[in-house]
Nucleic acid binder design. Structure first.
Lengths: 231, 231
DNA sequence: CATAGAGAATTGTTCAACAATCCAGCAATA
DNA sequence: TATTGCTGGATTGTTGAACAATTCTCTATG
C-alpha cells in the first residue's frame, strides 16, 4: 500500500469546506424537528409562517420542502401546502419489509465486513443498555436505531447507509403517534444484545435468524399498537 | 368482507385527479432526457439556458434540480451549477451491492408473492428476447431493467419499487459511458430466462442463486469495461 | 511560462407581484 | 335542520427582477 497522500486527506476535508446552501440547512433543521417530535405528524407548515420563523424567503423554503417531501418526511398537497407525514399502518408494514431485506442481507455478509463495523453495532447496544438503566426511554429508541443503522452498515454501501438513515427517520414518525416508548423499546434490548454477540462471535447466519425474529415481533407489536391508536 | 364502498374507489382515483406541479413535470422531462442519453453525463445544466429552453422561471427550475439531485441523477456543486452525474467505478460497485440485497431478498420470498408479479418478470424476459432478435440492443437493455424491476417487485413493497426504479435510472448513467450495448446485454438474456423459469417453477432459492451469478458476472464485466473506458 | 488581478458570467437568495386554488362563513332554499 | 351556492379572504404556484457572492476567463505583467 502506498504512503497516504496528503492531498487525499485534504480532499476529504473539502466536503466540510464548501458551505452548503441555505435550503439544505433549512431542510436539516426541519428534519431534526420532525425527528425529535417538535413538529408532530399532521402539522401543516405554512410557507409564510415557517419562512418568517426561519428568516428565509419563500423560494428557499420551498426548495427545502422539496427535499423533505422526497425523503417522505413531508407530504405535499397541491395548492394546500406541506404537512408532516402521518404514517399509516401499511406504511409501517412497508418500512419493515424493506428493512428486513437490507438488514438481514447486510448481516449475512458480515463475515467479510470490516471488524470495526461489527464493533460499532456492539457499541450501540451498550449505549441502549446504559440508557435503559437510567430510564431514558427515548434514548433507548435512539440507540436501537443506531444499532440497526450499524447492522445495515455491514453491507459497506453508502447507498444502503443513506437509504437506511432515511427509513429510520421515517419510522420515527410512527413512534410519535404511539406514546409508550418504554413498553415498545425495552423488550428488544436483550434481542439486540444476542444479535450483536452472535456477530462478534462470527456467526452471521445465526445473527440473521435472530434479526428475523426481531422483525417479526417488532412489526407485529408496532402495527397492533398502531391500529389501537389510529383505528 | 363488506361490500366494496364506491367512495373508496373514488378516493383511489384522487391521485390521478390532482395535477402535478410544474417543477415535478420539469423534473420528469429532465429525468427522461438523462435516462435516454440526450443529456450526457458531465453535461452542465445552466439555469439560464435550461430555464429558457423549458420556458420556466429560474426558481421553478431550481426546485426541479433539487429533486433530481436527491435522486442522484444530477450533482450540485455550490456556486458552480448542476451537472449530469458521472458515475465512477465505485458507484457501480455500490449500485450492484444494494441491488443484490434488494433483488435476491425479494426473489427468495417469491413463493408467497402474487403470481401476477412472477408472470410480469417472465414478460420482461420475453420482451428482451424479441428485441434481441431484432437487433434493438438499447431495448434489450430496457427490457433487462424491466426484468430486474419485476424481480424487486416480488418484495411487494412500494418503497422497494421506488428505490429500485431510482437505482436502475442511475445505472443507465453507467451504460452511457460504455458504448457496446450488444456485448454488454446479450450474454444475460439466457441467464434471465433461467431465472424467470425457475421462478415460475416455484423454485425461488434456485432462482436466487442464479441471480447471484448474474450479479457476479454483470458487475465484473461492467466495472472492467468501465475502468478501460474511464481509466 | 506562470501568476495576479480585473471584469464578465453564473449562481444564491430575496422580494414583490399576480394568477390559481382552496377554505371558512354566510345566505338561500327545500 | 340539513344541504347547496356564493363570496371574500387567505394560501399556494409561478414568474420576473434585483443584488450579493462566487467562480470563470482573459489579459497584462514579471
Amino acid at each position: 500500500m502506498a504512503a497516504a497522500d496528503p492531498l487525499d486527506l485534504l480532499s476529504e476535508d473539502r466536503a466540510l469546506l464548501d458551505r452548503t446552501s441555505t435550503a439544505e440547512r433549512v431542510a436539516d433543521v426541519l428534519r431534526q424537528r420532525i425527528i425529535d417530535g417538535a413538529l408532530a405528524p399532521g402539522t401543516r407548515l405554512s410557507e409564510e409562517t415557517a419562512g418568517r420563523a426561519l428568516a428565509v424567503s419563500r423560494n428557499t423554503l420551498r426548495e427545502a420542502f422539496r427535499l423533505l417531501v422526497h425523503e417522505r418526511l413531508l407530504v405535499h398537497e397541491f395548492h394546500r401546502g406541506v404537512f408532516v407525514r402521518v404514517l399509516r399502518a401499511d406504511d409501517v408494514v412497508d418500512l419493515y419489509r424493506i428493512r428486513r431485506l437490507l438488514e438481514t442481507g447486510a448481516v449475512r455478509r458480515a463475515a467479510g465486513a470490516d471488524p470495526a463495523l461489527v464493533a460499532a453495532s456492539g457499541d450501540a447496544v451498550a449505549d441502549g443498555e446504559r440508557a435503559a438503566s437510567e430510564q431514558r426511554w427515548w434514548d433507548v429508541g435512539t440507540a436501537n436505531m443506531r444499532f440497526h443503522e450499524a447492522l445495515a452498515a455491514l453491507a459497506e454501501s453508502p447507498r444502503v447507509n443513506d437509504t437506511m438513515r432515511q427509513l429510520l427517520a421515517e419510522l420515527r414518525l410512527a413512534f410519535h403517534v404511539m406514546s409508550r416508548p418504554r413498553e415498545f423499546h425495552e423488550p428488544y434490548l436483550d434481542l439486540n444484545r444476542q444479535i450483536a454477540d452472535l456477530l462478534r462471535a462470527g456467526r452471521p447466519e445465526a445473527a440473521a435468524s435472530r434479526l428475523d425474529e426481531y422483525f417479526d415481533r417488532a412489526e407485529t407489536q408496532l402495527v397492533a399498537a398502531y391500529r389501537d391508536h389510529a383505528g
